[in-house]
Amino acid sequence: MISKKSKTILIIGILSLVLSPIPVVGFGLAVVGLYQFYSDTMIKTSMKAEIGRTLSIIGLLINLIATAYVLFFMPFGNAPAWLTSLRDAFYSTSFYIDFENNFIAEARYNYILKGLGTTFEVTFFAALLGIALGVIVALVRSSYATLKEELRGGLGKAILWILNQLCGAYLTVIRGTPVVVQLMIIYFVIFASSNNKVLVAVLAFGINSGAYVAEIIRGGILSVDKGQFEAGRSLGFGYVRTMAFIIVPQAFKTVLPSLANEFIVLIKETSVSGYVGLQELTKGGDIIRSRTYSAFMPLIAVAIIYLVIVMFFSWLISLLERRLKNSER
């Protein structure tokens, strides 16, 4: 029963997303899908239904925008009289005047669009850098903790000791100073000769995020039962292979939600890039504000965009957590 119904909801969700640009049709489908979902208290347990619901909601939002576009902006050869009068009425509201001034005039919406692209670009590469750094630092720190007894003197231990000290210093400095300060130091001091602001932002946020990712991953490694490590070693695996085959796969599963959370934090953190003049989403909205002297529209628009992005990723994380819970031992 439930599986059949949730399949229907999923299909309706997909359809309402695909057909969302068409007024009435997309809207109707989305409403049907949402009604199916919310009228049944049991259906929430199904992941398919949940995905269908969210697709319907997204479809509904796109449809509202598309409908507004068709109603108020889409050029017609000879529009019916009621539409022309509706448009005239709309064009004279203070909402529209403000909207036109902030987004349409001089194609100012480009500040938002291009800014959003830059935000995604910086977040994506900073996340990659952060994960790479985080994994390395976490492995150095946890391997030093376990190997310091096994390695008896020698060059290997000396190198590991130095690396561990470096990683410790990195964590202390990065987590002990504000990210804006780090960003400005990298831009105005370290890369004073370069003007590649995206690169600077990626480095700053990647290095910053790496410190937090490192601690998340180290926590995951520590959370794996010590017996797992002993079992791997007793079979004859060396330290590195025990980590690779036994410990890290288990640790990864536990830290996946926290890592995804760190990613969400990172998206919002990039909003301070304006300090070095990088035009990302927040700066884009701020530039519009400085041109039009009206703060409400551009800033609220920026806030809504962040909110929608974060809500979407939070939803993805909750799905992920459910998946992991289902496959739990």
């Binding site: 017996g227 797992q228 079992a231 070693r233 007793s234 695996f237 599963k253």
Partner: peptide, 25 residues
């Protein structure tokens, strides 16, 4: 002796633990 390759020797010594320590994944 630290110069002995313990990983190699452990391959010839099976070990069974009180808490099984099977790999859950």
């Amino acid at each position: 002796d630290p110069s002995t390759n313990i990983n190699k020797l452990r391959q010839k010594m099976g070990m069974v633990f009180q808490h099984f320590n099977l790999f859950p994944h």
